[in-house]
Design a protein around this nucleic acid. Structure first.
Length: 605
RNA sequence: CGGGGCGUAGCGCAGUUUGGUAGCGCGCUUGCUUUGGGAGCAAGAUGUCGCAGGUUCAAAUCCUGUCGCCCCGACCA
């Protein structure tokens, strides 16, 4: 490709819309252009990168025995109602773009494809003899993100690889899940991405075991907690740890004491010489369900602990199965309570807050569902609010309150906490970008959509399913986030838009042009993905653009062209190798061959 | 959805407080010079000041409404 023909438009200044380096560089380099909030055009350079990423994914997916296909983006609501996700995805999370056609039929733009693939599998798969089957596609997905951010990192239209596998028994699902785990590690390594595999929450997809692949980056939106020994890593949404021990508090008898204006744990502790671990905190939420009334929830944690709302949500679902999926969990703080016309002594609430405290609030029916975290349950004596303004209470033990709680792990693990598998090690925090997620779905969707097969003994049973996603466009940007310097991007050879750029230092020098054209032809003939910068620009501009675009190899044909001398340089290193042009291919090709495989360990033949 | 901010040339921005001929830098066009790290000089082109109403002799500027975008929070595969 010649730079003249590339419609290369680079920007000297970062656009105002871009916050993080990868977003700035991609826009400055002319790789992407914003069309609407969270909607981007992939320009020719970006498209070359994406196609290389896709090629790597195809190779590795095919190697697991998966079959590529293409499913529709436009999907009928009826299918989503059968799995019970239409409401979750449209009304609840509101993440699915949906529309009504001219005949009044409701449709959604696919944010994911479990429903479609499962109904197809139900049609096509009849017998255990046809299993296992794994299907995948590379396709545009649509999600109406509340707040699109960071270019391709969180966009409303993006490219995703999604795969779905069907199995005759759980053991085969786990086997294939393991091989997808390995395939994913190979894909990311080949793309030059440093990832951390972590235990994850399954979220709205649901199901059993799941693992996320996090590209390590400060700009990442997820917090990963991992142990120094490499044996444990989890998304904070899901992470478990040992809370610090509490400071014992001996309470002889149930007493109230005045805490004027001390509406926070810190204030109470400071004024009465208490440790936060000697207190309990009470949080109120409203849980909204697909069916039935909203549920008031009262959660009790030890005073020094924070609530993990994902864990709380996951706890509530099974407790109230009859109300269907949880659509929202809303914190009832001072402002919200006032908006509902409730006057509660916020800051002075106790675990025994009576049910009638919230009577009269619109939409809320019945008493509290009371959830208690183990950190609170383990306390013998503790201090809590007395449900009266400016008063707290010393309680000798939980039996005093005569209440029944559902016990659950709802605390947020924190960096510095001791690990469950080895209290001698502690968790450290890393930020990550979720580039892949694999799930063992089990039979959730196959049961809902009646995707059954006849097993060896002739009886019908739902198939076991797994699903496996990679954010393709996000991955490409994550590579830039991990690989850039102050001059621009630094692409790994395996997914670079071009492997090598030839810069003609002075386009008016006949010798330079002639030698550059000759090398361009030779490199192309040798199968090298080469860009010839033949633009009528000064050398400085071409050098700057070459750095900005991050093309991994650079050949400069300049003042020594008449003597047949060129310069060879890599984007990442400073040193320049001056050599005779005739030696270029012999020097370059073996190195390129190695780099095209990405950072995979060498395989001996 | 709550809070904050911004919409002026392709990009980055000033001008708005205090109403009075539409500006700057980069980019673009032409010419000459220059030619190894985003060149110099000269001449030029480019705007429905987001949109719609209103106030006024006069609106980028004041008022009302509306649309879009960004940031923080909430939320989030």
């Amino acid at each position: 490709m010649r730079a003249q023909d590339l419609l290369l438009v680079t920007l000297r200044e970062p656009p105002a819309e871009a916050e993080i380096p990868s977003h700035q560089w991609l826009v400055r380099g002319g790789f992407i252009r914003r069309v609407a909030s969270g909607v981007y055009a992939y320009m020719p350079l970006m498209w070359r990168v994406l196609r290389k990423v896709e090629a790597i994914i195809r190779e590795e997916m095919d190697a697991t025995g998966a079959l590529e296909l293409r499913l529709p983006t436009l999907q009928p609501a009826e299918l989503w109602r059968r799995s019970g996700r239409w409401d979750t995805y449209t009304v609840g999370e509101g993440i699915m773009f949906n529309l009504t056609d001219r005949q009044g039929r409701e449709l959604g733009l696919g944010p994911t494809h479990e429903e479609v693939i499962t109904s197809l599998a139900a049609d096509l798969i009849r017998s255990y003899r046809q299993l296992p089957v794994s299907l995948y596609q590379l396709q545009t997905k649509f999600r109406d993100e509340i707040r699109p951010r960071f270019g391709l990192m969180r966009s409303r239209e993006f490219i995703m690889k999604d795969a779905y596998s069907f199995h005759g028994h759980g053991e085969d699902l786990r086997r294939y899940y393991g091989s997808m785990d390995q395939a994913y590690r190979r894909i990311f390594a080949r793309c030059g991405l440093k990832v951390l595999a972590v235990q994850a929450d399954s979220g709205a997809i649901g199901g059993g075991a799941s693992q996320e692949f996090m590209a390590i980056a400060d700009a990442g939106e997820d917090l990963v907690l991992s142990s120094g020994d490499g044996r444990y890593a989890a998304n904070q949404e899901r992470a478990q740890s040992l809370a610090p021990p509490s400071v014992p508090l001996r309470v002889a008898m149930d007493t109230r004491f005045a805490t004027p204006g001390q509406a926070s744990i810190e204030a109470v502790c400071a004024a009465h010489n208490l440790d936060p671990t000697q207190t309990v905190k009470v949080l109120l939420h409203r849980a909204c369900f697909a069916k039935g009334p909203d549920q008031p929830v009262l959660t009790v944690l030890r005073g020094d602990q924070e609530l993990n709302t994902v864990k709380l949500t996951n706890t509530l679902g099974p407790l109230l199965v009859e109300r269907g999926t949880i659509l929202a969990l809303e914190r009832l703080d001072v402002d919200t309570l006032q908006a509902h016309g409730l006057q509660l002594p916020v800051g002075f609430l106790g675990p025994d807050l009576p049910d009638d405290a919230i009577q009269g609030a619109p939409g809320l029916v019945g008493g509290f569902l009371r959830i208690m975290d183990a950190t609170a349950a383990d306390l013998a004596g503790f201090v809590c609010g007395a449900n009266v303004p400016d008063q707290h209470r010393r309680v000798p033990g939980w039996s005093m309150l005569g209440l029944s709680f559902t016990k659950a792990d709802v605390r947020a693990a924190q960096p510095g906490d001791r690990c469950c598998h080895d209290p001698g090690t502690v968790l450290t925090a890393t930020r990550g970008i979720e580039v892949g997620h694999i799930f063992q779905l089990g039979r959730k969707y196959s049961s809902a959509l009646e995707a059954c097969f006849s097993n060896e003994s002739g009886s019908m049973e739902p198939m076991w399913m797994g699903c496996y996603g990679i954010g393709v466009s996000r991955l490409a940007q994550a590579v830039v986030e991990q690989n850039h310097d102050r001059n621009g991007m630094i692409w790994p050879v395996s997914i670079a838009p071009f492997e090598l750029v030839i810069i003609i230092a002075n386009g008016e020098e006949q010798e330079q042009c002639r030698l550059a054209e000759q090398l361009y032809g030779e490199l192309r003939a040798a199968g090298v993905d080469v860009l010839l910068d033949d633009r009528v620009e000064r050398a400085g501009v071409k050098f700057k653009d070459g750095d900005l675009l991050g093309i991994p190899w650079r050949v400069v044909v300049g003042r020594n062209a008449a003597r047949g001398q060129i310069e060879l340089k890599t984007r990442s290193a400073r040193d320049v190798l001056e050599m005779d042009a005739s030696r270029l291919l012999r020097h370059l090709l073996p190195r390129l061959q190695r780099q095209r495989r990405g950072s995979l360990p060498e395989v001996e033949v």
